[in-house]
Design a protein around this nucleic acid. Sequence first.
DNA 1: TGAATTTTTGCGCGGGGTGCAAGAATTGAC
DNA 2: GTCAATTCTTGCACCCCGCGCAAAAATTCA
Lengths: 231, 231
Amino acid sequence: MVPTSSRETAAPAAADGLGLRELADALDGTPAERGLRERKKRARRLALIDAAQHLVTEHGLDAVTVEMISARAGVSPRTFFNYFESKDDAVLGADDGGLPEDVVGTFVDGGPTGRLLSDVQSLVAALLATADEGHDRVKKAMDLVQQEPRLLHRHLAWLERHQKQIGEIFEARRALHPFDTDTELLTMLVLLLLRTSLAAWERAGYAGRAADHLPSAVAQILDLAAGDVAP
Amino acid sequence: MVPTSSRETAAPAAADGLGLRELADALDGTPAERGLRERKKRARRLALIDAAQHLVTEHGLDAVTVEMISARAGVSPRTFFNYFESKDDAVLGADDGGLPEDVVGTFVDGGPTGRLLSDVQSLVAALLATADEGHDRVKKAMDLVQQEPRLLHRHLAWLERHQKQIGEIFEARRALHPFDTDTELLTMLVLLLLRTSLAAWERAGYAGRAADHLPSAVAQILDLAAGDVAP
DNA sequence: TGAATTTTTGCGCGGGGTGCAAGAATTGAC
DNA sequence: GTCAATTCTTGCACCCCGCGCAAAAATTCA
């Protein structure tokens, strides 16, 4: 449940020179985990995601069973459900991550720009930043969503999970810096910006970072509005 | 699969005076169906929706099984799946309906206003109009979505089903009257407007028609944009 | 090394959803 | 009204998802 922030990956990680380092890398590629248990857990999780993504790209979502995935990952089917709530979650490697506290704080305090749309943009940018950490797994997940539209609803599942948090963030800001926009609408706006940015990122062949495509999405909304009020 | 347009309901339907009329009304409330078969089918469908909605409001979504629903509706569990693809569809009474051809035609031809946002608004209004036809069933569905957020993803499921059609509509218009906005973004915008309007309608206690709350949603977007470009 | 804790795994079960073929009901022709 | 064609329902068998439970295996800590 705790957001397994993959910050460690990019961190300096000065050599805590143990012979276990090699094992850790062999298992996973992610160094500097606290213990054998944690490393194995992480390794299994990634193995399951990889297995799921491989199998689905090859045979299609419906032809792949949890049994196949767990077999390919070398664990029992029952164990699969210790790691994921559903097959779809494994395919997408649902990492969550949540919003960083500092970003939330700034937003609630009426920042960073003081303009609501732009500040929502900063929230979405923070969300998209987690996509960049996810290496190829996120990209593969994107491709799979494209290939299997049925997976699209997981975006909403994600929203549902964070709906409350996001709603509270908006309410907190509203209390300090009143605005008229419905919380409902803003929540959907977050989803819209996420989807649009990720789609554009995908169309660009995953060049650069996902958040690079956010400004364009926002600009399109501004254009849309400008074109409507003053044709 | 064919959208069971509820146009017949409003149609003049000159009396094809059979004694069966009473039976039809007893079964359903909707007069003037073509044959016994069609009427029974409609009656069963509505019975299943009512059963599902009743049971779910009473016991919660997860405590209700397809078996219960079909038992309450007086059909076999197997028959349930002749009418709905999933339990959720029955609960929401997924009626679809699709977009009326004339509305689509006008939109593709660059109408009705020539301003993209406003014209998207007309599409959403047409979609919302079908919600008004649905009497209480739609309202109940809305309440249930509120009560069981897990049902929310059916909005997206709906989108998935029509994504292609909607995308094509946008592309068709783009061919005649070029614009820059991503099809992706517009599709999500439709969803955003739908959700926001329905939510507002619900907050208003279902007073008036769902589409009445659409302009406010659009206005909020315009405000958002205006506040961002010129604080 | 041995006890405590965590995790995996096998087992069983309820429920969703589908293909199939038999049988019941509706329809249309006569 | 009767009978054949069509359509629909239903029971049956089946696979898969997802979870609770308890035994067994692995890891941690002393």
